[in-house]
Design a binder for these strands. Structure first.
Lengths: 264, 264
DNA sequence: GAGTGGTCTAGACCACGAA
DNA sequence: TCGTGGTCTAGACCACTCG
């Protein structure tokens, strides 16, 4: 029976003990018994308090770690770092996006390359100051064996990396990898935005499609370990030459995420 | 022979046994010893073959599961489902995609709902057989307080879930969550495709935009733990009413992913 | 009924951080 | 030195699938 009421068959009593334990700890974190920044009881203590084995305690804490609620450090303990899961749905993505679609198989033909002083608009787009001198690169991306480009690209590279070498006419490595290799920098976070747009006459000409046809606009902002912008790239693709694919895999969400009676 | 020991200080001998075991299994999967679709040896067998405890074997297989290389089913076994680690670059995404953009704040107004026998084209799109009877739903998505819809939606739901309840005129929960709750099913993987398109007259009318204006097409395929399609949703957004945002964080790579001498 | 993976116990040794 | 979490062993019982 699947009546309207109580469709959640996940009565807590039926859940594994480590899920029950994790739920208990989650509640105690949210009610302030273990404030953010404090240490959770040690595994040994939790074993005694709940009368379970260390395995069960570790499985429970593993759930909390996966949700970003606590972090663990050998020799120190388990520290509370948030009261709410950072996203009920933290998911992992297969790394095809950049590597496969832009790196492994494609080639960038550079059509323009210039160190420019930022105009107010560009400075705002890059979230930095007017007058900084960034390296600006424009080009077209080709898939192997294809005569028509599948993307127009404009890249801005931060001043400290503007001496980037290896930017001859055709580049077959992603620019952020070049930067990492030449400057020992490390990309930590990538922010991405995707939207649709209508291709203007100039873009349409370069991409060899009819003017005003539909295209997809993808912006990627590559941040280093200090969360500073290293590179911003905008790619514009004709509708019929590019599909963006990705996959997400659910990792945890083992715990019943009901909060305040709302089932989520 | 450890060679230059290179930039990755991860000499395999220093890694935990379960990482070594996972790496071994990964190699054997990639060399075809365990083809996609086949079953890995059982935990018991692996314990004997490698002379380790069941804990070690399970930790190793857990790594493979986390990378999407295998899936497990009690009573059946561990099945290979991919040869490439879905993360040369394992990245985590903050779960904004679905929850924030489609679930938390938005509302789906259902305009049509019908159990349909699949035409050949739809069967192909859903990767299943002609004649199966899937639940087909069409509607418009609204953001709170906005009079104009920001998406047109068409959803197909697998026959075994077509009795889905709660589909009255306005739905404020994501459909896949309804399915999970009512049928005890669990979404494990979501495949997503994004491309640009030109909105035809009918779509343009429903979305209240000029005909032939640019739009973005997003398809999501929700797979359960057995990698079977549960729901396929297509969302079409006008260019100026929707931007898709996501962030990727590079994570500490557990297994050394070097393939063919390339360091990655 | 035999075998699978999921859960769980009660121990153990280790590297590491802190006092 | 002491306690932490990380790793690992050798068992056990269970629900489930399949023949």
């Amino acid at each position: 029976m699947k009546g309207a009421a109580g469709q959640l068959g996940t009565s807590l009593a039926a859940m594994p003990r480590y899920v029950q334990l994790a739920t208990t700890l989650l509640n105690e974190i949210q009610t302030g018994k273990f404030p953010v920044g404090s240490l959770l009881p040690t595994e040994h203590v939790l074993c005694q308090q709940f009368g379970v084995s260390r395995f069960t305690v570790r499985e429970a804490i593993k759930l909390l770690v996966q949700q970003g609620l606590v972090n663990r450090q050998p020799g120190v303990g388990t520290r509370v770092q948030a009261v709410a899961p950072t996203g009920q749905y933290t998911q992992t993505m297969s790394g095809l996006t950049d590597l496969q679609q832009y790196a492994v198989e494609t080639m960038l033909e550079i059509t323009r390359q210039e160190v420019v002083a930022l105009s107010p608009e560009k400075a705002e787009s890059l979230d930095t100051s007017v007058g900084e001198t960034w390296l600006e690169i424009e080009g077209l991306r080709y898939a192997p064996g294809q005569p028509l480009p599948f993307a127009w690209t404009r890249v801005h590279i931060a001043p400290r990396f503007r001496a980037l070498a290896g930017l001859t006419g055709q580049v077959d490595q992603p620019l952020y990898l070049l930067i990492e290799q030449q400057f020992g920098c490390r990309i930590q976070v990538v922010h991405q935005e995707i939207k649709a747009m209508s291709l203007d006459a100039d873009l349409a000409r370069q991409l060899k499609v009819p003017a005003r046809s539909a295209g997809i606009w993808i912006q990627r902002r590559y941040m280093d370990t200090h969360d500073e912008l290293v590179e911003q790239a905008v790619n514009i693709h004709p509708a019929d030459r590019f599909t963006y694919r990705e996959s997400f895999r659910r990792e945890f969400a083992v715990m019943a995420p009901q909060v305040g009676g709302i089932k989520l």
